[in-house]
Amino acid sequence: MSELRDLYQDIILEHSKRPRNYRTLEVANRKAEGFNPLCGDHFTIYVEVGDGQIRDISFQGSGCAISKASASMMTQAVKGKRTEEAEELFQKFHHVVTGKNGTESIELGKLAAFAGVSEYPVRVKCATLAWHALRAALRGDQHAVSTE
């Protein structure tokens, strides 16, 4: 059970049950879908970008606890950030969930809760799905992002 708790930390379970910014965004000027054909996880990320800054962000869709909590916590982490800062954060997050962890988990704050994912290689895609969709949205990519 202790190992499982490394993956399913309380903050992750809490966000999966009560996701934040879980809605459509009327004023969004960027939007992208993330899709994991392996397990059917499917999210849409809505972003309002102005002057290079993420003014607002939301998401909707369905997926496992890891993917939903990750999307929820991502929206909180990047709201108000500049787009290049969000990109940087994704790279650090990616390092942490794939186990290439340097000092990055310290800089990640709450997102460091996802470090346990690195012990479950098949779940890395769940943790990064929303981030991939965000990147696609910021780059103006209209196609749905697939993890496969």
Binding site: E3, L4, L7, Y8, L38, C39, G40, D41, S62, G63, C64, A65, I66, K68, Y120, R123, C126
Partner: peptide, 20 residues
């Protein structure tokens, strides 16, 4: 989500399939 069911059961040595 079924995916989470699969991961937790795997920790118990139980192999099932999850997905579509």
């Amino acid at each position: 989500h079924p995916h989470d069911v699969g991961t937790i059961l795997d920790q118990e040595g139980i192999a099932i399939r999850t997905g579509h």
